[in-house]
Computed example of a mutant assay.
Amino acid sequence: MDKVRTVSDTKRDFYTHHTRPINSIYRRFIEELLVEMHLLSVNVDFRYDPIFALGVVTSFERFIQGYQPEKDKDSIFSALCHSVGGNAEQYQQEAQSLLTQVQGMSILEFMEILKVASSRMPGDGILSEIFQAIAQNAQFKYSRLFTVGLYTLVVKIAPNLVENKEQRNQIFDLISEVFHLSSEKIEKDLELYRSNLDKMEQLLAVTEDMLEAERKKQRKAIQQTQITDSYINLTNDHQDDSTNS
C-alpha cells in the first residue's frame, strides 16, 4: 500500500521548489492554502475539477495582491500546485477557460444550466458537462475552494447582484440543491471568504500607510543630510576664501 503523504511532506516539497523566504504578511495565508490543498489531495473522494481550480487561482490572486517581490508570485503558485501533485499552468488555463465560458452570460442562463444538470437532461457546453459530472457524483468531496470558484463565476456574471445577500443566497441555495451540498456550509464559507478579503485589504492598507510613513521619514532624513552637507561645503568654502585673502 502506498504511503499517504503528510502535511510535512507537502511543505517540504513546496519549499524545495520555492526556495526564497515568504513575505511575512502573506506567510500564514500561503501555508493555510497549502494545507487545505494537501488535505484534499490525499482524500480518496476528492476529484480535481475546473471549478476547484478557479477557486484556488482566485484565492491566491486575491490574497497575494501587493506581494513583494512581485516576481516571486509565479514561483510560489507553481510550488503550491506542484507540492500537491498538480500543475500550475493547468490550474490557470482551466480557471481562465471557465471565466471565458460565462462571459456575457446572464444569471438566469447560469441558473438554467444548473437546473439542467439537476434534471440529468443532456446539457450543452463545458460548464454544463462539469455541473452534470458533479451533480451525478454521489461521492463528491465538497471544499471551500470549490465554493470560492462558484462564487467567482457568479461575480463574473453579475458583479452587482452578489452584494445583495438575499439574491446571493437564492443562487447558492439552488447550487446546494443541485450538488446535494449543505446550504449552511456554503453560506458560512462564503461569509468567511468575504470577511477574510476585507481583513486582508485593511491589513494591506495599514501596511501601505506604514511604508509610506517610513518612506517620508527616509526622504526627510536624506533632505536633512543634503542640507547639512551643503552647509558644511559652504562653511569650508568660506574658510578657504578667508585663508586665501
Rank of each mutant, 00 (worst) to 15 (best):
D198Y: 15
S183H: 13
V162S: 11
M1P: 05
I157H: 06
T6K: 03
L174W: 07
T207C: 02
P122S: 06
S41R: 05
L234Q: 11
A158H: 13
G149R: 05
F146I: 01
Q226H: 11
F60V: 02
Q224H: 08
T225Y: 13
I227M: 15
Q93P: 03
K141P: 01
D240V: 13
E177Q: 15
Q93L: 11
T100Y: 15
N87Q: 12
Q136G: 03
E201K: 15
H17I: 01
N160Q: 06
Q170W: 11
A158P: 06
T19D: 06
S128P: 00
A95V: 07
M111N: 11
H18P: 06
R62V: 11
E166G: 03
F131L: 12
R12W: 08
A205D: 06
H82K: 12
R27S: 09
E212M: 11
D13K: 14
Q92A: 01
I25D: 08
K156D: 03
R27D: 04
Y91T: 02
D209M: 15
Y26I: 10
H38F: 10
T16V: 06
F179P: 01
I171K: 14
M1A: 05
P122C: 10
Q218A: 06
I227S: 14
D9N: 07
R62I: 08
Q92R: 13
K73R: 15
S182H: 07
A79C: 04
S83D: 01
K185T: 10
V154D: 06
R12P: 01
R5Q: 07
Q136T: 12
F52A: 01
S8L: 12
D9V: 09
L108I: 14
Q132M: 13
I232R: 14
K185C: 01
Y151T: 03
V116H: 08
G85Y: 08
E31P: 00
N244C: 02
V4I: 09
V148A: 06
S24M: 08
I134P: 00
D74W: 12
S118W: 12
R194Q: 13
F110P: 04
S245E: 12
Q224M: 13
L192M: 13
K3M: 09
D13M: 10
T16R: 15
I76F: 01
A53K: 05
I171M: 10
N160L: 11
Y15V: 03
A79S: 10
E31A: 04
G55W: 11
Q92N: 02
E32T: 15
D240N: 11
I175K: 01
G125T: 11
C81N: 01
P50A: 04
R215I: 03
E89S: 09
E109H: 11
R12V: 07
Y231D: 02
E129S: 12
L145G: 00
E89C: 02
G123S: 09
L34Q: 10
